[in-house]
Amino acid sequence: MMSVNEKTKDKCENSLPNAFGRDLGVFVLFLCYRKKKHPDKPSRQLEGGLLPFAFCLFTIYVLTLSGCDDTFQPIQENPEHPFTIYGHLDASVDTNWVRVTPVRETLYLEEGDTTDAVVTIEHLETGEIVTLKDSLFQRAPRIFVLNWWTTMQLEPMQSYRLVAKKPDGRASSATVTLPDTFPEPIATAGFVNIDVYIEGVKNLADASVYYLVRDHVNNSSINFKFTHLKDTVRTAMPPGVHQFNFNPEEHESYIDDFFYEIPYTILGRWIYVASAGPEWIYFPDYDERELELPDAVTNIENGAGFLIGVVSKRVEF
């Protein structure tokens, strides 16, 4: 497929003004040359002196510069970031999904844009390699994203390497180690709030409450996520236990406001907790501007993004 830079150059080289300017420049050059060749028959207008010379030079310069400039390069060469990789590999689920995006020349991936990338996961202990399958998701009219999935069963305490490769050999990769499994979180209902205790987790990657809601007008289901990662604390006694609490009525009040007069039904409620491997970064500590930078907070080699290995637990309430 032709790149944006190549398209710009091609369009320019074949443009009418470019050809017109060149041809006219050659014609003027021819006229000026003829005048020098017959000094005994000078032109009335361009007779003698510096003026005709300057005129010819200026005209040729102008005309040969005419048309469009094919040096314009809208896109800079990008050897460092062939792919952006986001997501997590979870030992607790049947199917793992990751976002692997070839860095592209347009703002959004559009329908019809294809990828010839190959994405694989390698179990570093066994050497087993599995190729992920791609799936195009539509985000909005004419806006798509590319996700990749595998049913490969991942195991706690094991290391995996995800590699995304282009046919020209350029590749981005990430190596993650999944953490050990941990006991199911304990949720205790108080007078108003529900307290959640998470034990055996060193890197807490997620602590959220989910509601699966059915919209009866659009006949669709929506997942509402209320995150409590930032207000989770470590208890002194017992030591090393993460604890947070939430008020389900506040959550449901928010959902009620969201639907306003649209009828809906809450189909399910659960607490979701995830423990991350050693590559985990506590993102709330970082400034949003820094997180925007492709190379600032990443564990992707030769690429951008962030991939983490996790073990998760889900507790219905």
Binding site: Y86, N147, S208, F283
Partner: peptide
């Protein structure tokens, strides 16, 4: 002059569901 475009996914509120 951009080198290209991608999407940025935030982890500040926990693990993202890429779907």
């Amino acid at each position: 002059q951009p080198m290209g475009f991608d999407e940025r996914i935030r982890y500040g509120d926990g693990l993202p569901n890429v779907r």
